[in-house]
Nucleic acid binder design. Structure first.
Lengths: 126, 126
DNA sequence: ACTAGTGTATTAGTTATCTATTACACTGTA
DNA sequence: TACAGTGTAATAGATAACTAATACACTAGT
């Protein structure tokens, strides 16, 4: 996997796992690949994977069972909360950045809507 | 100044300067504070400031005159292009993140619009 | 010429992240 | 009981970012 060398890899792995869980590629209760396999897939060290996993465990998103493996929590509430939290964080980041550039609420919404429409148009033409 | 310790400080300083220039707090042709003063204001080392500045100089956003100081370019076209580039980058980041979470174009626009409206409502109540 | 105020460069030391390697602990099955 | 497959921990070394300190180079004003 390719990483942005300006942000710690373990944080990018967290994002990658959030994404897999939120989109349902890793479903509630599902077992994750073994840490050594994950490390191989991501072309990264086991310790780095472990660091990301341990934070997800801390958050209650993952559950670890010694000798068995790591699993996505079966607590649906936690997963719903996770999705809301992740999306809100991303929306908030853009909002703050645009606010810092003195864009009004209307300008922000228009700019983003226009950007999205442009991207969709490009996709259609592919 | 407070920094996020998960992203290099010199990049955050770049963003800070982009913001100052785009919002007109630093106008076209204006002289920047001396590097030592900037370092003091940002509570950061001179070398770190210098690293950020040298990238802005490389981009043509700033112009340096030895012994005189650093100045915002008086090439308006460069500044307009800068604003467009910075905003497009930020919009693109959110777009990609939400696309990775399988949100549709409509869902993205609605989610952001709703977020912005909520923020504005909170501001009114302050 | 001197001096104060600029940017620039170099060196050395600290810290966080990441890697590589090895070892250990627990679980389930043959 | 062995063993293969899990997670977990610890150590040592590499690299990038940051800091601190010092020195150098150029400009403008006295």
């Amino acid at each position: 996997m390719e990483f942005d060398d300006k942000v710690p890899i373990y944080l990018q792995i967290k994002q990658y796992l959030y994404q897999a869980i939120i989109t349902g590629r890793l479903k509630s209760g599902a077992q994750l690949p073994a840490v050594r396999q994950l490390a191989a897939e991501l072309t990264v060290n086991v310790n780095t994977v472990q660091r990301a996993l341990s934070e997800l465990i801390q958050e209650g998103v993952l559950v670890t069972r010694r000798g068995r493996g790591n699993f996505v929590t079966d607590d649906i509430k936690v997963l719903i909360e996770l999705k809301n939290r992740v999306i809100a964080t991303e929306l908030g980041t853009l909002y703050r950045q645009l606010a810092d550039l003195n864009l009004s609420a209307e300008e922000m919404k228009d700019a983003f809507a226009q950007y999205v429409d442009e991207q969709e148009a490009h996709h259609d033409h592919q």
